[in-house]
Simulated assay, not measured.
Amino acid sequence: MRAAVLHTPGSPPSYGEHPAPEPAAGSTLVRVRAAPVVPLDLLCASGTAYLGVPATPYVPGGQGVGVVEVSETHEPGTRVWFFTPAGMAPGDGSLAELCLVPDGDVVPLEVTVPDDLAAALGLSGVAAWMALSWRAGLVAGERVLVLGGGGAVGQAGIGAAHALGAAQVVAVARPGSADRARAAGAEVVVPLDTHDVDELTASLAQHGPFDVVLDPVFGVSASAAAGTLAPGGRLVNLGGASGDAAVFSSAGLRSRSAAVLGYTNNALTPEQRTSAVTAVLEHAAAGRIRMAYDVVPLADVEAAWLRQAAGTGSRGVVRPS
């Protein structure tokens, strides 16, 4: 089959031929229609993360959308979203024409959301949805601040917050990605044009206080956002795109009985992940959750990989055919 094949950890995968997976008991063979290139794919392929060095060659790609070809559990022809541990465990991933997936990591899709959008949202949508609904316990009528609003998790989080009943959603976004945050549904977009915590806090305070902060970036943005939490407010961190450290005021947190919480998709059960995927894509089909993405053919996967590494532009979604 044709696939994106990673030969050297830390380098981009290259387009070429790779052995096709064989059907196996307990697994579903999926013909891939769309698969995103996401930061986790690059992390797994780097060979420098806590995940260890992956065995090469292998096909990266931790998720995708496709159609069941062979399965003892799922009806052939069923349209599905799927998860793979490629790069974290032996085996190939989704950036190929075919992918062999454990039966429990296959989610049948009954909604009419396009393949490309379903793939683009995927686990980013799951993270945003579960961080808000499960970890933060977002209640209808609360006010939400989304950091990194122009990124994939941020865009999904803006729509998810509205779908969960938020009274208002404010986003922080770099000037170059502010339009994506607005298109995702943010009523107000505060430009991230400073690295001064006090200055950013003052800008955010004009629109706060906030009951919930969705934070996929950490760093200066998280430090500033913590200063705008309402009494009982919750900041949920699910990434460190802007750094692995942030500074919080003890007095500020204690005086508001506020909480700083961590979140990871790895803590979800397969049932929680399935429920979240279904919810996110149902809202996407209804136009409530949106995300900007660019579609590229599998033959151009190296360019999509490098663009993700540079952190520029919208999400790249690869089509094998």
Rank of each mutant, 00 (worst) to 15 (best):
Arg182Leu: 12
Gly165Pro: 13
Pro175Thr: 14
His195Val: 15
Gly176Val: 02
Val197Gly: 09
Ala181Gln: 06
Ala181Cys: 12
Leu192His: 13
Ala166Cys: 14
Pro191Arg: 04
Ala166Glu: 03
Ala160Tyr: 04
Arg174His: 15
Gly176Phe: 04
Ala205Ile: 00
His162Thr: 13
Ser203Gln: 11
Ala183Asn: 14
Ala186Met: 12
Gly159Val: 11
Ala181Asn: 04
Ala186Asp: 06
Ala186Pro: 01
Leu164Cys: 10
Ala156Met: 10
Pro191Val: 00
Val190His: 08
Gly185Gln: 07
Ala178Pro: 02
Thr201Tyr: 03
Asp193Tyr: 09
Pro175Ala: 14
Ser203Ala: 15
Glu187His: 10
Arg180Thr: 02
Val170Lys: 02
Val172Leu: 15
Val197Ala: 03
Gln155Trp: 13
Gly176Trp: 01
Gly165Arg: 00
Arg180Lys: 05
Ala161Trp: 01
Ile158Ser: 01
Ala183Asp: 10
Ser177Ala: 14
Ala161Lys: 05
Glu187Asp: 14
Val172Ala: 14
Ala186Thr: 08
Ala178Arg: 00
Ala173His: 05
Ala156Arg: 13
Gly157Asp: 10
Ala181Glu: 05
Gly154Ala: 12
Ala202Ile: 00
Ala181Met: 05
Gly157Tyr: 05
Val169Arg: 09
Val169His: 06
Glu187Gln: 09
Val170His: 02
Arg174Ile: 10
Val189Trp: 02
Asp198Ala: 14
Ala161Asn: 04
Ala205Trp: 07
His195Gly: 15
Ala186Val: 04
Ala205Phe: 02
Ala178Met: 03
Gly165Ala: 03
His162Ile: 11
Ala163Gln: 12
Arg182Ser: 08
Ala167Gln: 15
Gly159Ser: 15
Val153Met: 15
Asp196Thr: 06
Thr201Cys: 08
Glu199Val: 10
Gln168Cys: 08
Ala171His: 05
Ala161Ser: 12
Gly165Lys: 11
Ala181Gly: 15
Gly157Thr: 11
Ala166Met: 08
Thr201His: 08
Ala166His: 03
Gly185Glu: 03
Ala166Gly: 07
Ala205Asp: 07
Gly185Tyr: 10
Leu200Met: 11
Val190Gly: 03
Ala202Val: 09
Ala173Tyr: 09
Val172Thr: 13
Ala163Tyr: 05
His195Phe: 04
Ala166Phe: 14
Arg182Asn: 02
Ser203Pro: 15
Ala163Lys: 08
Ala205Tyr: 06
Ala156Lys: 08
Leu200Gln: 06
Gly165Leu: 05
Val170Gln: 06
Leu204Ile: 13
Gly185Pro: 03
Asp193Asn: 15
Val153Thr: 09
Gly176Cys: 10
Gly154Arg: 06
Val190Leu: 12
Ala171Arg: 07
Leu164Val: 07
Val153Phe: 12
Gly154Asn: 14
Val188Asn: 09
Ala161Arg: 03
Ala181Asp: 08
Glu199Met: 14
Ala202Gly: 03
Val172His: 00
Ala183His: 13
His195Leu: 09
Pro191Met: 10
Asp198Val: 01
Ala166Asn: 08
Gly176Gln: 07
Ala178Cys: 07
Leu204His: 04
Val153Gln: 08
Thr194Gln: 03
Asp198Leu: 03
Pro175His: 13
Ala171Asn: 11
